[in-house]
Structures are given as structure tokens and as C-alpha cells.
Amino acid sequence: MASSIRVRAVQNGDVTSLKALVRHPMDSGFVKDSEGNVIPPHFIKVLTISHKGKDVVVANWGPAVSKDPFLECRFKGAKKGDELTISWIDNEGESDSTTATIA
């Protein structure tokens, strides 16, 4: 199965700019389906971006983050060709992880 995470990391001078898009329903638990049943909450809780084993940015998300969440962040200390690991885990214990190379 294809990864649920799409990442683009670009080196610009000494700053790395990372954009990540995750495919996930991010159900809040407040929405009802067409039959009036509440759709149970299902959302990503934690997403980490790590470089050389160190977490650069850790995102703690609640159900108010949009469906198919998008995150952009910037950091220093990496260089072109370095590998980044992006992983997430949701409230039902599902998880996914991918690696990206800085372009």
C-alpha cells in the first residue's frame, strides 16, 4: 500500500523547508453521517519529523485539524541529500512512517 504521507523537503541556503500532507479522515466525533449516527473520532494525535534520529518538530494534533492534514515547517542543521523520517500515530493506534530526502 502506498504511504499515507507525501513529503517535500527543499534546502534553501541553510534552511530546510518541509511540507507534509497526510491522508487521514481526521474525524472529530462531532459529525453525524447521513443516517444521523455520530461518526466516532478518528484523528492523528502525534506526528514527528526527525532528522538523524532527533525530533525536529513534533506536532500534537487534535480533532480540529483538517481532513488530510497539511503541515509546513522550517529548520536549520540539515543539508541537501539528508534523510528525514516522518511518522504519525492516531487515536486508534494506527501508524505510518516514511522517509524523504532533502532536495
Binding site: 525536529v56 518538530v57 480533532p63 480540529a64 485539524v65 492534514p69 509546513e72 522550517r74 529548520f75 536549520k76
Partner: peptide
């Protein structure tokens, strides 16, 4: 090492 910049999409 990270810059204080975050972009995210939220529900309101």
C-alpha cells in the same frame, strides 16, 4: 534547530 514557523490547516 527548527525555525519558529508553522503552517497548518484547521477546522472551525
Amino acid at each position: 534547530g527548527a525555525l519558529p514557523f508553522i503552517s497548518n490547516r484547521l477546522k472551525m
